[in-house]
Computed example of a mutant assay.
Amino acid sequence: MSQKDIVVIGAGVVGLTTALKIQEEGSYRVTILAETLPSDPKSIKYTSQWAGAHHVSTDRGDSRMFKFEKDTFDIMWDLSKPGGEAEHCFMRVRQEEYYDAELAKPNPLEDMPDFQYLSNDSVGNAVSGVTFSTVTIDTPIYLNYLLSRFLARGGTIIRASVQHINQVLEGGPQAFLPGRRPVYSTNDKATVDALVICTGLATRTLGGVEDKAMYPIRGQTVLIRAPWIKYGRSGYTASEDLSATGKAPWSYIIPRRSGDVILGGTRDKDDWFPLPRPDTTTKILTRTLALCPELTPPETRSNGRQPTVDDLRSIIVEEGCGLRPAREGGVRVEVEYVSAGANSTAKVPIVYNYGHGGAGFQSSWGTAAEALRLLGMALQDA
């Protein structure tokens, strides 16, 4: 049986995971078209490089998304096992979550390994809390792991700035290779068997899709060097909707295997500013230091000395910000059929997989599996 040609647009964590999942199925030849790749310098156009990231699901009443996240955790937990090929991308940690209110039970995190409710006398200034085991992800390393694994399985990557999906549907991926003559679609034949859209926030302006339900949720972070931090910690304002506009609904501390630690906690809806704001950095440092005084170097806390924000500034590696690709109505994972090109009546299935907001890493394998399922059904019906 001849393999079918699939083009995936986008090489963020969702695009890479989806392309890899499809390629490893064995029935497809997959080509990724992307303007930015994981090995490129960090850019505001490429959100995945700026992510924390850890796997901590938050129940927002979306059972479909919660399943995507659960399925993703199971895979990441397996990838992070000692001695595994991807162990270097992850760090298994004990996670602590603190809230300013009593939470309804059962907690959506109860399925996590080693889950426990914290007692009232162990939550400090918080009202309630939970603890469990999870994984943190060194995002630049993990993205390049996905890329190399995709290539090793026979995938192809072409750097391309796709302005309209018809460019791919009519000319195929070869249209973006200088000096190569595209194989144009004909009346009954398309150049590709299916197209998969994983373009995140860029889907708002991608010709042929132009999903105006997409919007950014800006997140600013501070990367520090603190290899003595071996646990994760978050503080939530539980009474506030985490998906809504809010300058600081929560603070988080995410250690990485490398010894770096990500500090953050901003969700600024419809904020497109591409650079870190100094006042926001100060707020992040102040909040995370209050949440975890152990962040500063051990010598700054000797002899009962109280650590300060300036102690944290001395170990800053980088400040950054990313634009989380959120979508009104939630993540879009579905399929539709479009014309194969201007001179063709053939129809091509398009599988959409975008709009993950801040949950791209923690739902990536779940939505990739759903995209593969939809792709298989669409091609079977074609």
Rank of each mutant, 00 (worst) to 15 (best):
I6L: 08
I6Y: 01
I6S: 05
I6F: 01
V7A: 13
V7K: 04
V8C: 01
V8F: 05
V8N: 02
V8K: 02
I9M: 06
G10K: 09
G10M: 03
G10Y: 00
G10S: 13
A11R: 04
A11K: 03
G12W: 00
G12R: 00
G12N: 02
G12E: 07
G12V: 07
V13S: 00
V14G: 09
G15D: 08
L16M: 09
L16H: 05
T17Q: 07
T18L: 03
A19D: 00
L20V: 07
L20Y: 07
L20N: 09
K21F: 05
K21S: 09
K21Y: 07
K21N: 11
I22V: 12
I22A: 08
I22H: 09
Q23C: 09
E24R: 10
E24L: 05
E24H: 05
E24K: 07
E25L: 06
E25A: 15
G26Y: 09
Y28A: 13
Y28R: 02
Y28E: 06
V30M: 04
V30K: 03
V30S: 02
V30N: 00
T31V: 01
T31M: 04
I32L: 04
I32P: 08
L33S: 02
L33N: 06
A34W: 00
A34Q: 02
A34S: 15
A34T: 12
E35D: 14
E35F: 08
T36Y: 10
T36C: 01
T36Q: 13
L37C: 09
P38H: 01
P38E: 07
S39T: 12
D40F: 14
D40V: 10
P41G: 12
P41K: 14
K42A: 13
K42R: 14
K42D: 08
K42W: 08
S43C: 13
I44D: 10
I44K: 02
K45L: 14
K45N: 11
Y46V: 06
Y46G: 03
T47Y: 02
T47N: 09
T47D: 06
S48Y: 00
Q49A: 15
Q49G: 14
Q49E: 04
W50T: 07
W50V: 07
W50N: 01
A51C: 14
A51V: 11
G52L: 10
G52T: 10
G52K: 10
A53R: 05
A53L: 03
A53N: 03
H54E: 13
H54N: 15
H54L: 14
H54T: 15
H55S: 11
S57E: 12
S57M: 12
S57A: 15
T58A: 15
D59L: 06
D59M: 01
R60V: 15
G61Q: 11
D62A: 11
D62P: 15
